[in-house]
Design a protein around this nucleic acid. Structure first.
Length: 570
DNA sequence: GCCGTTTTCGGCCCGACTGTTTTCAGTCG
C-alpha cells in the first residue's frame, strides 16, 4: 500500500465518524493522521520495515493510529473501518461533497428519507421530497440539484496554471473598482499549490469602496453565491469559485496570513499565540481586547518571535522548527535559472524548429539549453534514427552563430519495458546530456517498474531522469514506482532527477523534492516545452521547487555553464 | 484520538454567511 492509501483510509474513517456525530476532536485526529501520512517524505512501508523508526514519533500518530497502520499493513484491511461501514453507508460520504451538505444534513437525509447515495438524493430533490425535512427549504433543494450537476461535471480541482488564466484578468478588473489600497490573492494560489479549489482575494480600502458591487458585476460571473459587505463569493463561467474579502487596512497582514493558510499552518500559529496570551485571528494579533499588530504579515510572525515564512512553506511540514532555528530555505527565484534542459522540436512532437527554440531561450537570457526530442521507439512521434546526424549538424550550425548560449546535444531517451534504453551507445556517445523517461507500459507492478527505471538509470551515459512518476494532474495517476528507491539510485549514480514544469505534470511532487534534497540529489527543473511559449512554464517549476524547500544549490540548472557541465561528470 | 518545560486530564481556532426560522444551526474556509 502507498502512503496515499493509508491516508484515504483515515480520511474515510473521519467522514464516517462525522456522519455518526462523533467527537469532533477525534475526527480531527484522523484527519491530521491522514495528512501526516499523505505528505510524508518517505513511504510508510519503509518506516514499518525499519527497526529503529517508530510510527508513534510521527506528528499526529499516536498509539491507536499506529496500531491501525500496522493492521492495514499486515492484513490489507481494517476491522474498525469495516465496522463503521456496516453502521454507516459509505456512499453517504459522496453526499458530503455537494456544497451545502455536511455531515449533519447527510445524516438527516439518511434518517429521514433513507437516502444513501448521490443518485437517490438527486431523485428525491427532483421530486421535491427534501422539503419534508426540517431546515431544508426550496433554495437549499435547488442548490443541491445544481451541486450534483457540478459534482458530475467538475473533475477535481483547478490546476494552478488554469486558475491563472482566470485570476489575472479578474485582478485587473477589480483594481478599477476605486478606493482600494491593497488587492492580493491569498489561499492555496498564493502558496502555489499544484491545484487550487478556489481563489481567495483580499482587499483593503482607504474609504468607501464599491468593490463588492463591482465584483459581482464582473463579466464572467456565472453565479453569485454570496454577497455581503465584507465577503462575497461567486462562480466564474469556467467553474472556478472566487471569494473576495474586504478587510480594514490595519488588519491586512493578519488577514493575509489567515487566508493564505494552510489551515494546518494557521492552527500552529494560533497555538503559539495562545501560549503567549495572544489571540490571533484575521483581524490582527490581540492582547485581551487590545490590537497589538496586524498591518503586515511580518508583524504577525514577529509577535510570536518567528521570521516571516514564505507562503510556499506554510504547510506545517517542518517550517516552524526551521524558522526557530533560523534555517528556513532561501527560496529559489525564477531568475536563478540559467538554462532549460528539456524541450522538443519539429524533429519529434515539438511545434517549432531548433532555431526558433534557441532564439526563445536566448530571449530568456539562458546560458545553456538542451534539445531533447523523443527517441525513435515512440512511433509517429520520436525522432528518426537516421535524423540524429542531421539534427546535431544543425545544432553545430546554430552554435556557430551564437556564442551567448550553449546548445547541448541531447535526447529524451525512452526507457523500454526491460529497462534498456531505446538508443545504442554509438548514438548516446554523440550527446552532451542524456535524459531518460518512461512513456509506455505503465501497468507494471511497482517492483517491476522500479526495477525497469533503476536499471536504465544505471546506464553510464545517463544524466537525468525525466518526469519520474508519470502522473498527469486530474487525468492520470502516477505509475506505481518506488520514488525513494529512484532517489537512492540517483544518489549512487550521480544522476539528476527532473522536476518537470509542465502544469499538468509537476513531477516530482513537492514532498519528493524534499526527499531528494535531503538525500543530496540534484534536481533539474525543465519545461519539457513543445513550443517556445511553453518555456515560460519554468515559473511553475520554480514554484513547485520552492514548495519542495529547494535552494539554488539544490537545482542543477541554476549553476553557471562550466559548473553545470562538471555536474554531468561521473 | 493526540498531546504535554504549568497538565497523563482536559484541552483541541473561530468568524462570516445562508437559509430557515424568529434566534440559530449548519456549512465553509
Amino acid at each position: 500500500m502507498e502512503n496515499i492509501d493509508y491516508a484515504r483510509v483515515f480520511g474515510e474513517i473521519a467522514d464516517l465518524l462525522e456522519i455518526q456525530g462523533a467527537n469532533p476532536f477525534r475526527i480531527r485526529a484522523y484527519r491530521n493522521g491522514a495528512r501526516t501520512i499523505e505528505t510524508l517524505s518517505q513511504p510508510i512501508e519503509s518506516l514499518l520495515a525499519d527497526e529503529e523508526a517508530r510510527l508513534e514519533d510521527l506528528p499526529g500518530i499516536g498509539k491507536d493510529l499506529a496500531g491501525k497502520i500496522r493492521e492495514l499493513h499486515e492484513t490489507g484491511e481494517l476491522n474498525f473501518l469495516n465496522e463503521l461501514r456496516r453502521e454507516v453507508p459509505a456512499s453517504l460520504v459522496q453526499i458530503m461533497h455537494i456544497p451545502g451538505l455536511g455531515p449533519k444534513r447527510a445524516r438527516q437525509l439518511w434518517d429521514g428519507l433513507e437516502i444513501t447515495s448521490v443518485e437517490e438524493l438527486e431523485e428525491a430533490a427532483k421530486a421535491g421530497a427534501l422539503e419534508e425535512l426540517p431546515g431544508f427549504g426550496p433554495t437549499l433543494q435547488e442548490r443541491i440539484l445544481k451541486g450534483i450537476v457540478e459534482l458530475k461535471a467538475r473533475a477535481g480541482r483547478f490546476k494552478l496554471a488554469d486558475a491563472d488564466i482566470y485570476v489575472h484578468p479578474l485582478l485587473e478588473y477589480l483594481r478599477k473598482a476605486g478606493g482600494l489600497a491593497d488587492l492580493e490573492v491569498a489561499g492555496s494560489y498564493r502558496r502555489r499549490c499544484e491545484t487550487v479549489g478556489d481563489i481567495d482575494i483580499l482587499a483593503t480600502s482607504s474609504g468607501e469602496s464599491p468593490l463588492m458591487d463591482h465584483f459581482v458585476a464582473y463579466r464572467d460571473v456565472q453565479e453569485v453565491l454570496a454577497k455581503g459587505p465584507t465577503k462575497s463569493s461567486l462562480r466564474l463561467k469556467g467553474g472556478l469559485q472566487v471569494d473576495l474579502r474586504l478587510v480594514p487596512r490595519e488588519s491586512y497582514g493578519a488577514a493575509m496570513a489567515y487566508f493564505t493558510g494552510s489551515k494546518a499552518h494557521n492552527i500552529v500559529i494560533r497555538g503559539i499565540g495562545r501560549e503567549r496570551g495572544l489571540k490571533i485571528n484575521e483581524y490582527g494579533v490581540f492582547e485581551g481586547e487590545r490590537l497589538v499588530c496586524g498591518r503586515t504579515e511580518e508583524e504577525v510572525y514577529a509577535a510570536i518571535d518567528l521570521p516571516w515564512v514564505p507562503p510556499e512553506l506554510r504547510e506545517d511540514r517542518g517550517e516552524f522548527d526551521a524558522a526557530r532555528a533560523g534555517r528556513l530555505p532561501e527560496s529559489l527565484r525564477l531568475d536563478d535559472i540559467r538554462g532549460d534542459l528539456q524541450m522538443h522540436t519539429t524533429y519529434s512532437d515539438g511545434r517549432q524548429s531548433a532555431a526558433e527554440m534557441v532564439e526563445a531561450c536566448r530571449e530568456r537570457g539562458y546560458e545553456y539549453m538542451a534539445i531533447t526530442d523523443h527517441s525513435p521507439s515512440l512511433a509517429m512521434t520520436g525522432i528518426k534514427a537516421e535524423d540524429f546526424e542531421r539534427q546535431y549538424a544543425e545544432i553545430d550550425e546554430l552554435q556557430e552563430k551564437h556564442d551567448d548560449i550553449r546548445i547541448l546535444k541531447s535526447c529524451e531517451v525512452d526507457i523500454l519495458e526491460d529497462g534498456s534504453l531505446d538508443l545504442g551507445d554509438d548514438i548516446l556517445a554523440l550527446m552532451d546530456f542524456v535524459v531518460i523517461a518512461v512513456h509506455s507500459k505503465f501497468n507494471m507492478s511497482r517492483a517491476d517498474m522500479t526495477r525497469r527505471i533503476t536499471g536504465a538509470m544505471r546506464h553510464p551515459k545517463v544524466n537525468a531522469l525525466a518526469h519520474p512518476t508519470g502522473r498527469l494532474i486530474n487525468r492520470r495517476e502516477p505509475y506505481p514506482v518506488d520514488v525513494e528507491e529512484l532517489v537512492k539510485v540517483a544518489c549512487d549514480q550521480g544522476l539528476m532527477l527532473e522536476l518537470n514544469a509542465q502544469p499538468d505534470r509537476l513531477d516530482l511532487r513537492d514532498f519528493h523534492l524534499q526527499m531528494a534534497r535531503e538525500a543530496g540529489v540534484k534536481i533539474v527543473i525543465s519545461t519539457d516545452a513543445h513550443r517556445a511559449a511553453e518555456l515560460d512554464y519554468m515559473r511553475y517549476g520554480v514554484d513547485q521547487a520552492r514548495r519542495g524547500w529547494l535552494e539554488r544549490a539544490d537545482v542543477g540548472n541554476t549553476y553557471a555553464l562550466e559548473e553545470f557541465l562538471k555536474l554531468l561528470e561521473k
